[in-house]
């Protein structure tokens, strides 16, 4: 599904990604872990297509297409959805409106008829329940006045509605208390399916005790320095990043 080959990127003058190789197949859950400044967020933004993140080398293929040929909205419609570390507040745009526009943009892209308000509401109500969100959230401006936990739940709500092929979650666990973490994890687990891949980018192991990954990768200094199964996360928990970084050096 996703093939990253020797990806290098910089932000302004700073080289951040120095050659990343990663392959993600349908049905898999990958965790990318790493200390602050290792390049985790840069990797997410490069895959999302954000301005200011310059790809200087390597390739990324998604479902056989060159990702860098696609605008951010095209990537989303092809099925990559990025859950933001800091979901953006958009005053004046109602949550329901954003969801519906995004949902219909995708349907239109696939040549399917757009959903009417009634059909759409029915779909969203069900997803709201999973995320333990009140219906009033739909009529509030996107993320405006939401608590940290509510913002993250809102990100996962979008995932549940848009059903991406690849869900890319950037530090979705940061700023969550234990109850919110459970709800968010429950939402992500609902996304698990044989034809969908999930990539969790996180600093901490605790998310992985709720969402069990198939693969764990350690990112440091802009490279994946070690990959393994879920036991690698436990090792990190015991020894910290420093141990692995030294071992790899």
């Amino acid at each position: 599904m996703l093939k990253i080959n020797n990806l290098q990127a910089r932000v302004e003058a700073a080289e951040i990604l120095k050659g990343i190789d990663l392959e993600v197949k349908a049905g898999e859950v990958h965790a990318i872990m790493g200390p602050n400044g290792s390049g985790k967020s840069t990797l997410c933004q490069v895959l999302g297509g954000r301005d200011g993140y310059e790809v200087t080398g390597g390739t990324v293929e998604f479902m056989g297409k060159d990702l860098f040929e696609l605008e951010p909205e095209e990537r989303a419609r092809e099925g990559i959805l990025l859950g933001f570390q800091y979901p953006v507040e958009i005053p004046g745009v109602k949550n329901i409106y954003l969801l519906k526009e995004a949902y219909n943009a995708q349907r239109k892209h696939r040549g399917e008829p757009e959903a009417d308000t009634f059909q759409f509401l029915k779909l969203v109500r069900e997803k709201l329940k999973t995320m333990q969100m009140d219906e009033s959230f739909l009529h509030r401006a996107v993320n405006v006045g939401f608590s940290g936990g509510e913002k993250k739940r809102n990100e996962i709500l979008q995932m549940l509605v848009l059903e991406p092929k690849l869900a890319l979650l950037d530090e979705t666990d940061s700023g969550l208390d234990i109850d919110a973490l459970k709800v968010v994890s429950e939402g992500v687990n609902r996304l698990r399916s044989p034809d969908r891949a999930i990539v969790l980018v996180t600093h901490y192991q605790r998310l992985l005790s709720h969402i069990e990954p198939d693969f764990v990768h350690v990112l440091s200094g802009g490279r994946i320095i070690k990959s393994g199964d879920k036991t690698l996360a436990h090792e990190l928990e015991r020894n910290g990043y420093q141990g692995i970084i030294e071992e790899a050096a």
């Binding site: 999302g48 951010p72 958009i90 526009e101």
Partner: peptide
């Protein structure tokens, strides 16, 4: 905000 909306599939 533009990037956020586009990352949800909404064109520029």
């Amino acid at each position: 905000s533009m990037y956020y909306l586009r990352s949800r599939g909404i064109d520029a």
